[in-house]
């Protein structure tokens, strides 16, 4: 690969270009999840009968996944701290733990969905369940994408390359965590 263009190295706004782009990415994600959740909330308020379906979500599993993601967020920010000190190998290790939590999240999710589907709560079961699967599914897709990208960043960080990217993937990861922080009460707690 050729060297970076001069354009990439300029920072007129006082923020590194990569971080600026990640923040814009987060803006575009805010409106995607925002549109989805706004649609869900207005339906949920307009359809009191959905509470009957919502009663069947398992708050214990949802809670477990909340803790998994919160902890993975801690590991991501610790990786950023390590990268900030220039300690690439430690950052890579912590990113690996973060990826481990991501995999755990997906396993728990797989178990949860299997249970629910086998009880007949499929995506077509009712209005609530279709939003449940779409919202959690899009979120899980973000987890998968984030974990894959984090894998690449980890490989680079291990060789002390591009340590700035540890922070960038961390920002994205915290955002995915944030979405779950709101999905948890919306889908599991508020019945």
């Amino acid at each position: 690969m050729m060297g970076k263009p001069i354009a990439t190295t300029r920072t007129v706004m006082g923020v590194s270009t990569g971080k600026l782009a990640v923040w814009w990415l987060i803006v575009s994600e805010i409106v995607i999840f925002g549109g989805l959740l706004a649609s869900y909330v207005m339906h949920r308020i307009g359809h009191p009968e959905w509470a009957a379906s919502a009663a069947h979500t398992d708050v214990r599993i949802g809670g477990l996944n909340t803790m998994v993601l919160l902890t993975s967020s801690l590991m991501a920010v610790l990786a950023h701290a390590a990268a900030g000190r220039g300690d690439g190998p430690l950052a890579a290790k912590r990113l690996a733990v973060t990826i481990g939590f991501a995999v755990m999240f997906l396993c728990v999710k797989a178990y949860e969905w299997t249970t629910e589907i086998s009880h007949g709560y499929t995506i077509t079961a009712s209005g609530f369940w279709q939003f449940y699967y779409v919202a959690a599914g899009i979120h899980a897709a973000h987890i998968i994408a984030g974990a894959i990208i984090m894998g690449f960043v980890m490989m680079q960080a291990r060789r002390n390359h591009e340590l700035g990217r540890v922070e960038l993937i961390g920002l994205y990861w915290h955002f995915v965590d944030l979405v779950w922080i709101f999905l948890f009460p919306l889908l599991y707690i508020a019945k």
């Binding site: 575009s28 994600e29 805010i30 409106v31 995607i32 999840f33 549109g35 706004a38 649609s39 899009i138």
Partner: peptide, 11 residues
């Protein structure tokens, strides 16, 4: 574009 297209992507 970026600020308006999100809800449609969800839709």
């Amino acid at each position: 574009f970026m600020a308006s297209v999100g809800p449609l992507i969800a839709g």
